[in-house]
Amino acid sequence: MTRAHIPGILAMAAVVVASNILVQFLLGQWLTWGAFTYPVAFLVTDVMNRVYGPGPARKVVIIGFAVGVICSLIGTQIQGEFGPLVTWRIALGSGLAFLTAQLLDVAIFDRLREGRWWRAPLASTLVGSSTDTAIFFTVAFAGFLTFIEPGNDVSWAGETLPLLGVGPAVPLWVSLAVADWLVKLALALIALVPFRVIVSWAQSHRAVA
């Protein structure tokens, strides 16, 4: 890890902290504001991977994971209206989802790095984002995993409702997961623009230096 990696480290830490705060604020019926900041973590990882390689990218991911764990532990100690702001299931799901998805992103990006410039960041982010959503919502809210934290009542998440209010009847947590996933897919496409700009700037800056 060198001084050149510090911006990536700070960016990842900022994204993780901001997302842990903004996830407490609802946006409509299916989303929180954190759904729009968390996907930026994949942008940070992909930029680090393109500019510095998979090694530094993985180190930034580990640092982001550590920051996330600290945020989750703090959240478990803060009491909200309905109990701790962060339950142990949410903390476990968040950490497991982040680490798995981000490391998968790094691996896929590295495998595809020799292709067209947009292929690696798009494919790695789509797969990583989908993995992240599946792991987090399943671990945090699925009824068959109540043994993880028996004292945490997540029966509300299992309430059967139309998917996103219009589709077939599914547990509420599935609608929350699908809404989160759709946002991540949209942001994966949008993120190609800043990815291209930041990588071009960083590579030209390194060449001049």
Rank of each mutant, 00 (worst) to 15 (best):
L163G: 10
F98A: 06
L163P: 13
V139G: 05
V174Y: 11
W117A: 13
T146V: 15
A41H: 08
P84N: 13
T87Y: 11
G165E: 08
T76V: 01
L161T: 15
N152R: 01
I62R: 00
A57M: 03
I108C: 08
V40K: 03
L96A: 15
I70S: 04
L112D: 05
V69K: 00
V60F: 01
I70C: 06
T131K: 00
W118I: 08
T76H: 13
D46T: 03
A41F: 06
N152V: 08
S72N: 02
V67S: 01
I148S: 09
T131R: 04
A41L: 12
V127I: 07
R113G: 07
L145Q: 01
F98M: 04
V86A: 11
P150A: 12
Y52T: 07
I78N: 04
G95F: 06
D46Y: 13
D110V: 01
R113E: 14
T138E: 05
W117R: 01
F109N: 08
A123N: 10
P56S: 02
G80A: 09
A120R: 04
L104A: 12
G143E: 14
S175H: 04
P54Q: 12
P121W: 01
T100Q: 00
E114F: 11
W156P: 02
K59P: 03
S175M: 11
L73F: 08
S94I: 04
S155D: 08
S175Y: 06
W118K: 01
R89G: 06
G80T: 00
S72Q: 00
R113Y: 07
F136M: 09
I90D: 06
E149Q: 13
L103V: 02
T131N: 08
G158D: 15
A41K: 10
V106R: 05
V139W: 04
L161V: 15
V47P: 00
A120L: 12
G75E: 06
P84C: 08
L164H: 11
Y52S: 11
R89N: 05
I70G: 10
L96Q: 14
V106C: 07
F136N: 03
Y38P: 07
L163M: 10
V166L: 15
G128K: 02
L164P: 10
F144R: 05
F137T: 08
G55P: 01
F147M: 11
L126H: 04
G158L: 13
P171E: 12
